[in-house]
Design a protein around this nucleic acid. Structure first.
Lengths: 160, 160
DNA sequence: GTTTGCGTTTGAGTGCGCTCGAACTTCTAC
DNA sequence: GTAGAAGTTCGAGCGCACTCAAACGCAAAC
């Protein structure tokens, strides 16, 4: 159901126009330029979140991070991978609570895979609904822009 | 740019599957079943927000609502139309602050039309960006679902 | 004629996800 | 050796968009 048309979807998504694509392809498939271990600033930069936020995620139990001799955080590839996942889920609207639950499942071992899949499937559906909502708003907004000045237009639109 | 392919877009959006479409087409083009004036409960029901929220929007200066003899709010077609617009913008992520600014422009008369259009265009672009972000997250999530159990899969994915 | 239910106002409270301040340590460069 | 940048912990604070509590009014239903 998912993988078959993935390539087409990716092309659709990346093909539209410039700037986001580059960044986006990074977010999607990167991890190639990970320096094996990274500082908090590097990870923050990579994921486009603040160092504050990374510490917050750690405090929230979403990821464990080693320290070097002087107490500074050292992010290894696993931690970074997990944070890539976490930030993607956050960006697509999954609440902290659900992420905490998901990570607890991960820590709970292979037996929790079905429940994890349930969560992912549910989140996928949430994203799909959200995209459809946004598409409706987009259409409405485009319509309003297109008909503006046309004395309020056919009253499909609200005040403005 | 917008209206040309609107019909196709609407069909794409509505065509995918059932339940949301009906509700959605209402949100997009309804206003046919507006009883000329409505109570707060009716409007809340129509827009799928709480009466609390409607009062809050009013307090925020987004809409003016008349009262009947006993002080109860009476929403006329204009108020409802505006609220349809407002809730759609909220749903697509426009902040209250921007909405307040927009409404101030509306109250400022025809001379503010260009600035209103600027706001709408900017919001349209924001929606588009958001949709593309969500599409990436969707693809990533679908990929993860599809490859789960496949011993972590090719490491495009994060921890899980 | 009082109970039920929907409405009113004002101001305060909530939940979420950060975000920041303060006080302190540690590394790098001059 | 000292200035400055970047790191640490802890707890508190913030911005947003609601959401609710309390005390009250009105009006139809039993």
């Amino acid at each position: 159901m998912a993988t078959d048309d993935l390539m087409g979807r990716v092309l659709d998504t990346f093909g539209e126009d410039g700037p986001l694509s580059v960044e986006a392809i990074h977010r999607l498939a990167d991890l190639g330029d990970i320096a094996d271990v990274m500082s908090i600033a590097e990870v923050a930069d990579l994921l486009d979140v603040s160092a504050h936020t990374l510490r917050y995620y750690e405090r929230a139990g979403l990821v464990e991070v080693e320290r070097d001799a002087s107490g500074h955080r050292v992010y290894d590839a696993d931690a970074v991978r997990r944070l890539v996942f976490l930030t993607r889920m956050r960006l697509s609207g999954m609440p902290m609570r659900d992420l905490q639950h998901y990570i607890a499942l991960v820590d709970g071992g292979e037996g929790t895979v079905p429940e994890r899949l349930d969560m992912l499937v549910e989140h996928r559906d949430t994203i799909r609904r959200r995209i459809r909502e946004l598409n409706l708003s987009l259409i409405a907004t485009e319509y309003k822009i297109a008909t503006y000045g046309g004395r309020t237009g056919p009253d499909v639109q609200g005040e403005g």
